[in-house]
Computed example of a mutant assay.
Amino acid sequence: MKTETIQTLHPDPSKTNKKIAVDKYEQIKAELLSILAVHALTHSELMEELYQRVKDNFIGGVQWYGETVKLDLEARNLIVRTNDKPQKYKLLS
């Protein structure tokens, strides 16, 4: 059985992001959006929160998938980086 994949996007148009399994994409996307719906987080905080939420029911590298999907969500204008120091991620309102 062939796994359905999605071509993820990258915020830098000159770069190509990865093709990943749709089910993993949807799971990570839902978690990232859920986390950021509460408050803006730094990259480290966001990845740690994601890891804590999915580590028990996700097969694969949580950080790698988290980064790939985060970049895709940025490219799709669903999340944005703030100008704070340190930089944070938040939902685009």
Rank of each mutant, 00 (worst) to 15 (best):
I59Y: 11
A37Q: 14
K18T: 04
K70V: 04
D84W: 00
E49Q: 12
V54F: 05
E45L: 00
T16I: 13
K24C: 09
D56T: 15
E49W: 04
I35H: 02
I20Y: 03
V54S: 02
R81L: 09
S44T: 12
L36M: 05
V22K: 09
K15S: 08
S14A: 13
E74C: 12
D12C: 07
P13W: 04
L92W: 00
M1F: 12
S44M: 10
K29Y: 08
A37N: 13
L78R: 15
L32R: 03
D72K: 01
E45T: 04
Y89E: 02
L73R: 03
G66P: 07
P11R: 14
V62P: 01
G61R: 11
V22T: 06
Y65Q: 11
A75S: 08
K15P: 03
H43T: 12
T82Y: 07
E4A: 13
Y25K: 03
K29D: 06
G66V: 11
H10Q: 11
A30L: 08
E45S: 04
Q27Y: 00
L9A: 13
E4Y: 09
L9Y: 08
F58W: 07
D84A: 11
T16K: 15
P86K: 07
D84V: 00
P86Q: 06
V38K: 12
T68Q: 11
E4D: 10
K29N: 07
